[in-house]
């Protein structure tokens, strides 16, 4: 199984009181559970089923994902910039694994 590796792009500088765009991508096969291997056995589902972004302790976006989200799930959304700098990203995988990444937003 390939490694689950998050990639995050924050704006270079953000202004308090304004929206700022965040782009995230996590490397993941997003196995749907619908495919069969060469022997006809169903390959079990293994997807990222939830993604959240929190900023200064407040939820920015909480996303539920199904198998119909492409491999290497990409999500783009906006954050309302305030005084806080810490942005926490969390990906939840089938089977209970959780991947967390924290980034510093430069508020100028």
């Amino acid at each position: 199984m390939s490694e689950v590796k998050p990639r995050i792009r924050l704006p270079r500088s953000a202004t308090a009181g304004k929206a700022a765009e965040i782009k995230t991508l996590v490397s993941h096969v997003m196995e749907t559970g619908l495919r069969k291997d060469a022997d006809g056995n169903t390959i079990p589902r293994k997807i990222i089923n939830r993604f959240t972004c929190e900023y200064g302790g407040d939820m920015v976006i909480d996303m539920e994902l199904e198998g119909a989200v492409s491999a290497n799930p990409y999500v783009e959304f906006d954050i309302m910039v305030g005084d806080a700098t810490e942005v926490v990203f969390t990906w939840y995988e089938d089977g209970g694994n959780v991947y967390t990444e924290t980034k510093e937003l430069s508020v100028g």
């Binding site: 304004k18 929206a19 700022a20 765009e21 929190e54 900023y55 200064g56 407040d58 939820m59 920015v60 976006i61 909480d62 996303m63 539920e64 994902l65 199904e66 119909a68 989200v69 959304f77 906006d78 954050i79 309302m80 910039v81 305030g82």
Partner: peptide, 12 residues
Amino acid sequence: VAVFKFGPAAGS
């Protein structure tokens, strides 16, 4: 496919 829930810190 997916559900997006927007929280208090959402910019849009």
